[in-house]
Design a protein around this nucleic acid. Structure first.
Length: 300
DNA sequence: CTAGGATCCTGTCAGC
DNA sequence: TGCTGACAGGATCCTA
């Protein structure tokens, strides 16, 4: 369960109100592989801005430096104001002084930090930012701001769904004609920010079976697909992504923000909200995949 | 070039 | 209770 575009966007917004213009006074790397680059250069730097490119978060610092953060599957970023050892309590939601947590929802959103999963911590005078990551696939990488486009992940990244037409997507689908459509839209070089949740949601919206060969889609389907990705992501950002607020609102221990917008993801066994058929969970391109077998028939 | 599968790593959960 | 295998909101690397 991990961060896709809407979650990273939510984190960007949540952190911005807390660390913009603040100075990093200390950095602690607890897991070597989680931080790439010269740690010492980060100390004393000031946060000048924050951006998101696909699922990558960019924290722009002074002296031509940028922290590029990718949460991958289980990364999370948690900000705790100074003196606040635990996460927010009910009633504190939305308050800047309550702190912020986003990414893979776990009990660390609420518990004492640093924890067993804390890989890197950035200390500010006003509080601490913890980068936690159970599986260690994510990372923080220090790069030069002026050389951001040399970064291979960013250089190859496709356009955001809002910057892409159905026509442009269709063109890319033709080059990957033999692959299942789900695998193609999960490719960040085709379109930026779509992960397992939004791939399933977009395909359901467009009425396309995930195993359909990409080359079988027509312009109308391609347009519906990109539109579905936009709508699902917009709804998710509106709901606040997998932030601490929604996580806590559930029952204090479990995150369930998906309930606010998901039509198929993790709804296997439940009724399709469009036709009433039972949602199924299948496997496509090695990923757990959720479909309505009635609304999404494979085009042979 | 594309397609498909293995791989990185830790934790949880279902089934025996 | 203890063990085993499958699986997990990602992306890259390797092989055919």
């Amino acid at each position: 369960m991990m961060p896709e575009l809407p979650e990273v966007e939510t984190i960007k917004r949540g952190l911005k109100t807390r660390i913009l213009n603040k100075k990093i006074i200390q950095v602690e790397v607890r897991e070597q592989k989680s931080f790439v680059g010269e740690v010492d250069k980060v100390v004393g730097r000031k946060v000048l801005g924050m951006e998101r490119k696909g699922k990558a978060l960019l924290i722009k610092l002074d002296q031509d430096l940028t922290l590029m953060i990718h949460l991958r599957m289980t990364g999370q970023l948690i900000y705790r104001p100074k003196g606040k050892e635990y996460g927010l309590e009910i009633g504190e939601i939305g308050k800047v002084e309550a702190g912020f947590a986003g990414g893979h929802p776990t009990a660390d959103f609420l518990g004492s930090l640093p924890s067993k999963q804390t890989r890197v911590s950035l200390e500010f005078e006003e509080g601490s930012l913890f980068f936690n990551d159970q599986r260690k696939f994510g990372f923080i990488k220090l790069i030069k701001t002026s050389e951001i486009l040399n970064e291979s992940f960013l250089r190859k990244l496709g356009p955001e769904p809002w910057q892409m037409s159905g026509q442009e997507l269709l063109f890319k689908l033709k080059r990957r004609a033999g692959s299942p459509i789900k695998g193609v839209i999960l490719d960040q070089q085709v379109v930026a920010g779509i992960g397992n949740i939004y791939a399933d949601e977009a395909l359901f919206y467009a009425g396309i079976h995930p195993a359909t060969k990409a080359g079988k889609l027509n312009l109308n389907e391609s347009e519906k697909l990109i539109e579905g990705a936009r709508k699902a992501m917009e709804a998710s950002i509106e709901a606040g992504g997998s932030t601490m607020a929604t996580y806590v609102r559930a029952d204090g221990t479990k995150g369930d923000y998906l309930e606010q917008f998901a039509q198929v993801f993790q709804r296997q066994g439940q009724k399709c909200l469009r036709c009433g058929a039972e949602i199924q969970k299948i496997r496509v391109v090695g990923r757990g995949t959720h479909i309505c077998p009635s609304c999404q028939k494979e085009k042979k």
